[in-house]
Design a protein around this nucleic acid. Structure first.
Length: 893
RNA sequence: GGGGGAUUAGCUCAGCUGGUUCAGAGCAUCUGCCUUACAAGCAGAGGGUCACUGGUUCGAACCCAGUAUCCCCCACCA
């Protein structure tokens, strides 16, 4: 035979992916005769490239989708990409910068032209990469969150929510990203622990309040305040120019007397009041707090309570503006260093302490966030969150693993309004139009806006050119949250065949990092716009880490290139490698060894096929493999049932391991070894028929995991009709065979005898093929007779005989109540044999005693369930039999 | 600071409502084999007082309490 001994995936994979596409197997249409099975892809960034996280995520989706397709469902996997507003804009800005172009030099239209050019060049690379992985998406349905149709959906939703009073515009403290120069949502802010410094600054007291101050109090607190100054602790000395007050706790005896006094901002000299507010903790810092309403949320609220002015000294890029008076134009961090130095020199800095602090950073740009008071658009969340929380609480949407339910609840119960406006260009521009009088209207189109504006202003001659559209775009997630609906055009045409059939989708596979960003909001949008959850199950994958548990990163260089891996090990190998170590919700420690294992498994399967394919049939031969065929049939049925169970519970790893062992251990190592004819001998027709059928069933079970090799072997195994592909073959159904328990138990005993023989071979250093004799003293002679062929073949036993007393020169082993002897000439170490048997006997006795004790316990026999009792009795009987056999064996030594 | 999860063989994890063979798998390790499907392989073996302490129970890896360690999420003390 000319088939190579190793399987080579490269050509095979490309070929089959193309054929599947040609056959249109991945295309899904509403089909009333079939149940829908829908998955929408978490759209990757349009300019992204495949990384290991995508590999895992999409492998899992593909396994689910392929299995559903085989189960006869109308499987629809919708692919697409996300415009990733801030990330993509940042990339484009960086690229332009390299070309010497500043974003500020471009008009909006010019910038967008550059951005779209970039998208045309790099967009969609990732989708091509997914094909190499084998992803069985319906590519005709590929969508992009910023394409015209989806933009329409976004605008419709914006207008609708505005009209419902859920979207409002207002000045609020928001998270400002000075790097991206845009506001971001609370979810896009990541708290980072840092080692920071605490600066203790002196604010000179310039006027005393009317209250009488006792000398005593001043003396007590000499260190902190004197008549001359009050010391304030801050981590941000550069913001003193924005100070509006110094706050102390009114109960604080150290400072009470100063409330109402004026102090002078160090260096700057501006006078600010000392105010009293319960908010201030007396035991933190010096107990005196500088209040900077423009640059801290708490300070802002303090300011509102005490009618303090808001002095915003920071420009959008994080540098100090002219309101700062000092350090104008310097970056906030440079200014911090400088002011510390200047304060020191001026003798206004008491001390600097190291201090473990937390800074808020931007998820995208990593820049330190500035709390900034600004005019933004917000979406009220309360109304939307309530039903979305309920849907998860009552398991209408199930999170896998369920531990995420707690996280989800905590977030939902504390959710704040969503800042949806971004000061960017790449995204959906907010459909709000400002009139010359400063008021605005919200409308789907400029024309509609004009009509509204005329009505609102009472000016019938108002022109379109007089309206100015809001400059901001919407948060990317404001389009992503509509994804399960918008990909089926559910906003444009809410009653179309696709949305009615494919929505709600079934399973969503994504990472827990976007549980709030995306998953929670999709549930909200689904309930608001379809009155139905967008999916039933959410499978949350872990993070792909390296074998040492470190996150994969470019800096560490520990992230393999997925395409390189596929080229080297085959997509099937990589897919199985990833799944071998991917229990839901747990981080996955990626190890090349697992991919190797996956590749080796492909090879194992290939060789099993090679063996079967190479058999010559002789139709005149009788069917000699009844037992193995019946046994493997039973094994297969049991495995299918267990696999289905694993799938229902989203235990993909377990399902894979199940079929892995079924193929490798049961089919290859046992079944094929049992039935395979001697070298160059033909096989009987019935054995070949059963074996081929089994192999086909295994290919089906494996197909969701290893789509390529299974398709290849499916076609290599037989001539197939035009559309007979394993990827659309019916998923095997578990059907219990009548006597399967008996078959399995019988074979298990026979195989234990084989294992006993092989152990003797190993211990005595006999080769695997040297023919041996087996002498059995057993109370189950029928078993031995039934399985004699198998024992002979797998144990290389030439002759099986029964005897009441074993031969003297023999090695023996005890199984159940039976004793088995391998007669050997010469090299028997009687002493060693005795020791081994004695050890075994001691062990068996100990076991028997413990069971006996249990059974002798009245409380046990009264309380235990009957089947448990029965099992214990059986255990006792088995132990007794074994002890008897061992004793007998020792006597005959 | 609040909440959640974890701790089982060298590693990664199963162990589903407490009770089948005195705790399982994969990988790794060790021993022996190039036995014509496969050395990307075959056969076999070793390895765990189930984090610790106490409690409930006839019976605990599993339930309860406490301790320790680790991880995750949330969080406006300057």
């Amino acid at each position: 035979m000319s088939l190579a001994t190793t399987y080579s995936p490269t050509d095979v994979e490309a070929k089959w992916y193309q054929r599947w596409q040609e056959q249109g197997f991945f295309k899904a249409r509403p089909n009333p005769k079939k149940a829908p099975y829908t998955v929408v892809i978490p759209p990757p960034n349009v300019t992204g490239v495949l990384h290991m996280g995508h590999m895992l995520n999409n492998t899992i989706q593909d396994v689910l989708v392929r299995r559903a397709r085989m189960q006869g469902k109308e499987a629809c996997w919708v692919p697409g990409t996300d415009h990733a507003s801030i990330a993509t804009e940042a990339k484009v800005v960086a690229q332009l910068k390299e070309q010497g172009i500043a974003k500020s030099d471009l008009t909006r239209a010019q910038f967008l032209a550059h951005a779209f050019a970039w998208k045309e060049k790099y967009g969609g690379i990732i989708l091509e990469q997914l094909k190499q992985l084998g992803a069985s998406c319906d590519w005709d349905r590929t969508r992009f969150t910023m394409e015209p149709e989806l933009t329409q959906a976004v605008l419709r939703v914006f207008v609708d929510l505005y009209n419902k009073g859920l979207i409002y515009r207002g000045v609020r403290m928001v998270n400002w990203d000075p790097e991206g120069r845009t506001a971001i949502s609370d979810e896009e802010v990541i708290a980072k622990n840092v080692q920071a410094k605490m600066y203790y600054l002196r604010y000179e007291v310039v006027s005393s309040p009317l209250s009488v101050v006792s000398d005593e109090k001043i003396a007590d607190n000499q260190q902190l305040t004197t008549d001359n100054y009050i010391t304030v602790a801050t981590s941000r000395p550069e913001t003193i120019m924005a100070d509006a007050a110094v706050a102390v706790n009114p109960k604080d005896p150290r400072y009470q007397h100063l409330i109402g006094a004026k102090v002078r901002i160090p260096l700057l000299g501006r006078e600010i009041p000392v105010i009293g507010d319960e908010y201030v903790s007396m035991d933190f810092g010096t107990g005196a707090l500088k209040v900077t309403p423009a640059h801290d949320l708490n300070d802002y609220e303090l300011g509102v309570r005490h009618h303090l002015p808001v002095i915003d000294i920071l420009a959008d890029d994080g540098s100090l503006n002219e309101k700062a008076v000092l350090y104008v134009g310097q970056d906030r961090f440079a200014a911090r260093k400088q002011i510390a130095k200047d304060l020191q020199e001026a003798g206004l800095l008491d001390k600097i302490e190291e201090y473990a602090s937390i800074v808020q950073t931007s998820e995208r740009t990593k820049a330190v966030i500035e709390p900034k008071l600004s005019l933004q658009w917000f979406l009220k969340m309360e109304h939307l969150a309530k039903p979305a929380l309920e849907a998860v609480e009552n398991d209408t949407v199930r999170l896998h693993p369920p531990k995420f339910k707690n996280m989800y609840r905590a977030w939902m119960e504390n959710v704040r309004d969503w800042c949806i406006s971004r000061q960017l260009w790449w995204g959906q521009q907010i459909p709000a139009y400002y009139l010359p009088d400063g008021t605005f209207v919200v409308a789907l189109t400029a024309e509609a806006a004009l009509t509204q504006a005329r009505a609102q202003s009472g000016k019938a001659d108002l022109q379109l050119s007089e309206l100015r559209q809001d400059e901001d775009v919407l948060d990317t997630w404001f389009s992503s949250w509509l994804w399960p609906i918008s990909v089926f055009d559910g906003f444009k045409d809410p009653d179309n065949a696709d949305i009615n059939y494919f929505y709600p989708t079934n399973d969503l596979v994504t990472g827990p990092d976007i549980l709030f960003f995306w998953v929670a909001r999709m549930i909200m949008a689904g309930l608001e716009y379809r009155h139905e959850v967008p999916f039933r199950n959410v499978y949350l994958t872990g993070i792909v880490r390296d074998a040492q548990g470190r996150k994969m990163s470019k800096q560490l260089g520990n992230s393999p290139d997925p395409l390189e891996l596929i080229a080297q090990y085959g997509a099937d190998g990589v897919r199985t490698g990833m799944l071998f170590s991917a229990p839901a919700g747990n981080d996955l420690l990626f190890d090349l060894k697992l991919v190797e294992q996956g590749r080796n498994f492909s090879n194992k399967l290939w060789n099993a096929f090679r063996l079967v394919k190479g058999w010559e049939v002789d139709a005149t031969l009788p069917f000699v493999n009844e037992k193995p065929v019946a046994w493997f049939g039973a094994k297969l049925q049991a495995a299918i049932g267990e696999m289905d169970d694993h799938f229902e519970k989203f235990r993909m790893s377990d399902a894979l391991l199940m079929v892995y062992k079924l193929v490798w251990d049961d089919f290859c190592a046992l079944y094929l070894e049992m039935v395979k004819p001697a070298y160059q001998h033909p096989v009987d027709a019935e054995t070949l028929g059963h074996t081929t059928a089994y192999l086909e069933t295994l290919l089906k079970l494996l197909h969701p995991f290893m789509p390529f090799i299974t398709e290849e072997l499916w076609h290599e195994l037989a001539e197939r009709a035009e559309r007979d592909y394993v990827c659309v073959a019916p998923w095997p159904k578990a059907a219990a065979t009548a006597n399967s328990a008996e078959l399995l138990a019988g074979m298990e005993k026979a195989l234990a005898i084989v294992a006993g023989i092989r152990t003797v071979r190993n211990q005595k250093n006999l080769g695997p093929n040297k023919p041996l004799a087996l002498v059995a003293k057993t109370d189950e002679p029928a078993l031995l007779t039934n399985y004699e062929g198998i024992i002979r073949k797998l144990g290389s036993i030439a002759e099986v005989t029964f005897a009441e007393v074993g031969p003297a020169a023999a090695v023996s082993f005890v199984l159940g109540g039976g004793e088995f002897f391998i007669p050997l000439e010469g090299n028997i170490d009687l002493g060693a044999e005795r020791t081994r048997l004695e050890k075994e006997l001691e062990y068996a006795r100990g076991f028997r005693d413990s069971v006996q004790k249990k059974l002798g316990n009245e409380k046990f026999t009264q309380n235990a369930k009957p089947d448990v009792l029965e099992r214990e009795r059986q255990k006792l009987a088995d132990a007794e039999a074994k002890i008897a056999a061992l004793e007998q064996a020792l006597r005959s030594l």
